[in-house]
Write a protein that binds this DNA or RNA. Structure first.
Length: 498
RNA sequence: GGCCCCAUCGUCUAGCGGUCUAGGACGUCACCCUUUCAAGGUGAAGACACGAGUUCGAGUCUCGUUGGGGUCACCA
């Protein structure tokens, strides 16, 4: 394998359109993309829609949308075409049938006439007898006449691969090394289904061959069927690609791999998104998600974990991929997302904050948003958190906090009211409503009233923002302006019992 | 259960026979800064699953045990 002439690098991501993109799928796509970019190769998007039962028409669009959002542009694919198309398997069925027949003609495969029900029955009996379930190869040696008899019954055959019955299948995996399978334990897998469409096994080998895919990077769950695929390459007599089986992402709380079926929860019991679209909606940045995904099962080197994906291209190699599965490190995603938010230029962050604010029903003025953005930049970990922290800036009507929220620690209503009144007097006299000037004007009042900064600034904060956790007080006053600030203090005063 | 893969701090990881009294990051805790919340700074606790080998020497190689994961479809 290693001494074959290197081929141009062509990798592919081949999802089946059974729903929108899974986060684990995005990582597989990312690694394939990274490898292609690293080696100046091509990254191909292929749709594996040979299972009509599970096909969801919406998902092709969603899949592509998620990939584009993440910045993983493909060089060939169903929407943009390419020299190796079509890129949707259901449009390639003649190819699969042609080569399935070739296998038949060359004694590498055979027709089997059992119905799904009969196979199911066989499995049940095997299980009942505590035998390993599997096809018993009954039809592997059928005569012409026997086949004709089944056909006469109206049975439609599937085509199964004639696996070697003894010996080993030995394969070199690019990240796991030598993997050995005993042929006697392997199955004669179905290659072409009764509906004339291929199974994954046949389809991917044929497509990867004709699309000249050089490296197949896929999740480890494919490893058990690798020997079948390998025997197919051997049967065809074609040069196999280099296989690399990636570790999977495990559920952080319970056991098993991350799955949308069993929604995972973090240690606080909050649900963790699994689908890429959920991450989009939750306010994660694509650059943060890619950065995060690249850190699972691979590492940048230099002890660096924060990076932009373009920086990873130069360093991405298969031998740096960790073969162990890993659980989904939620807190790290939060941290990385916060990091990427903080690194964004203010204008860029403001632009991204618009969507979640508008989704919350707020009217977003661009100038105002630009002023508010720096105040939230170090305080949010996801874009959607802007709504809770600074949504009040964009509400048409100000909603004051409760009296008890305004009253600070070790203070009562009277003292609070007094502080508000005195503050109002001072603020009314300030012409330059800037953060610094406001701070300087109010500061002396703390000692006059025998309060500390926390108390005085705190009650002003709650009066002016309506929240106990908010953007900084004086910065907020500067943005909303003098009239509004005084108005809100009046509202607070009205709330306090006399 | 058969087969296959995997195994370093709670988590993500570095480590590719000696430089490991095991490094980094997230998280946690403490302190500093501080008008809330963050951010930032400083510091602390915290791991080579176990047992045999190989070797002058093992986190690093081999085998076994244990544990975890995956897979056993006319789904991918």
């Amino acid at each position: 394998m290693t001494d074959t002439t290197p081929r141009p690098v062509r990798t592919r991501f081949a999802p089946s359109p059974t729903g929108s993109l899974h986060i684990g799928g995005l990582r597989t796509a990312l690694f394939n993309w990274l490898y292609a970019r690293r080696h100046g190769g091509k990254f191909v998007l292929r749709i594996e829609d040979t299972d009509q039962k599970r096909y969801e028409p919406q998902s092709l669009e969603e899949l592509m949308e998620a990939l584009r959002w993440a910045g993983l542009q493909w060089d060939e694919g169903p929407d943009i075409g390419g020299d190796y198309g079509p890129y949707i398997q259901s449009e390639r069925r003649e190819l699969y049938q042609k080569w399935a027949n070739w296998l038949l003609d060359n004694d590498k495969a055979y027709r089997a006439y059992e119905t799904p029900e009969e196979l199911e029955q066989m499995r049940k009996e095997q299980l009942a007898r505590k035998q390993p379930p599997g096809y018993n190869r009954q039809h592997r040696t059928l005569s012409e006449a026997e086949c004709a008899a089944f056909e006469a019954e109206g049975r439609i055959p599937v085509i199964r691969l004639k696996m070697p019955l003894e010996g080993n299948t030995v394969i070199e995996d690019a990240i796991r090394g030598r993997v050995v399978f005993e042929n006697a334990t392997l199955q004669d897998m179905v290659l072409l289904k009764a509906d004339g469409l291929p199974t994954y096994h046949l389809a991917h080998v044929l497509d990867d061959h004709f699309m000249e895919i050089s490296h197949v990077m896929r999740a480890v769950e494919w490893l058990p069927s690798l020997p079948v695929h390998w025997q197919l390459w051997l049967a065809f007599g074609w040069e196999p690609p280099i296989y690399a089986h990636l570790p999977v992402i495990l559920n952080p709380d319970g056991k098993g791999k991350l799955s949308k079926r069993k929604p995972p929860k973090d240690k606080h019991g909050n649900p963790i998104p699994v689908m890429v679209h959920d991450f989009m909606k939750a306010g994660y940045l694509p650059e943060a998600l890619c950065n995060f995904l690249a850190n699972i099962g691979w590492n940048f080197g230099d002890d660096r974990e924060f990076f932009y994906i373009n920086e990873a291209i130069d360093r991405f190699e298969l031998d740096r991929i960790n073969e162990a599965n890993s659980t989904f490190p939620t807190e790290k995603l939060e941290w990385l997302n916060g990091m990427h938010i903080r690194e964004l230029p203010v204008e860029a962050l403001a632009a991204r904050l618009r969507a979640p604010l508008e989704a919350a029903g707020l009217i977003v003025d661009s100038d105002l948003l630009l002023k508010v953005t720096p105040l939230v930049q170090t305080r949010i970990k996801t874009l959607s958190e802007v709504v809770g922290l600074a949504g009040f800036f964009f509400k048409p009507e100000f909603t004051p906090a409760s009296a008890e929220a305004i009253i600070q620690k070790k203070m009562d209503a009277a003292a609070t009211a007094q502080a508000l009144v005195r503050s109002r007097e001072i603020l009314a006299g300030v012409d330059d409503f800037s953060t610094q000037a406001l701070h300087d004007a109010i500061q002396p009042l703390t000692s006059d009233l025998g309060l500390n900064n926390s108390q005085l600034f705190g009650l002003l904060r709650v009066a002016v923002t309506g929240q106990t956790i908010s953007t900084p007080t004086f910065e907020t006053m500067e943005i909303i302006g003098k009239a509004e600030t005084l108005h809100r203090i009046d509202m607070a005063l009205a709330l306090l019992p006399a």
